[in-house]
Design a protein around this nucleic acid. Structure first.
Lengths: 104, 104
DNA sequence: CTCCTGATTCGATGACTGTCGAAGCAGAGG
DNA sequence: CCTCTGCTTCGACAGTCATCGAATCAGGAG
């Protein structure tokens, strides 16, 4: 990644593969909501235990979604003592956002 | 749709379902590239025949991806005579983009 | 060391998705 | 009417994915 706005120049095959990976990670309601919960949480980070309670889903499932977000580069996790804290990577979000709209 | 930026307030369950539908549609390299080809094409619209040649994919497959984009509300198709022309819906793209970054 | 708790990994399973060829549909032109 | 061409729909199949319970790992506390 990346790249001129989508509406200006056609994406190359490689660019579209990279970009699609990010959008695909965001293409699940649970993951989008996780992303939002982490991003909007006080201090810019959230512990997994804060996230699990919000959903009617098992721990392993939440963990799986966090892994997908992590592998897409959208979040990072850091262990501090007993708990693991996640925070978002704002620049990847910003880049993904920028591709969707024309230059100003 | 929608909605305060992702990083300001946590998405509701309903919002995340709606939004995820859009990102999911963009979560495939072929579809992202189709979107880009249509958006960046002269006149803001492209005929299916313009699109098919770019990929090593069968007609039905391209048609399938266009349908997914159409059902996500990202593009609209209009038949004029023999050919069908697609164009993007810029406001949905803009809204999806806006959710990803904080207010200015 | 042993137990407890928070979180991830593993393995299985049912559902969904990308792809194709074949068939169908819609206009244009004989 | 028939035929040709552009595009979509249908049916099938292989691959991927979301989900769970069970097992595992990593620290903290006794």
């Amino acid at each position: 990644m990346c790249c001129a706005p989508l509406v200006r120049d056609p994406l190359s095959a490689e660019q579209s593969v990279d970009l699609a990976r990010v959008f695909k990670a965001m293409g699940d309601p649970v993951r989008l909501r996780l992303l939002s919960l982490i991003a909007s949480h006080a201090g810019g980070e959230a512990c997994v235990c804060d996230l699990t309670d919000v959903f009617d889903l098992s721990g392993p499932t939440i963990s799986h979604h966090l892994k997908v977000l992590r592998e897409a580069g959208l979040i990072t996790g850091e262990r501090r003592g007993t708990w693991i804290y996640y925070r978002v990577c704002p620049d990847l979000l910003a880049r993904a956002s920028a591709v969707l709209v024309p230059d100003r």
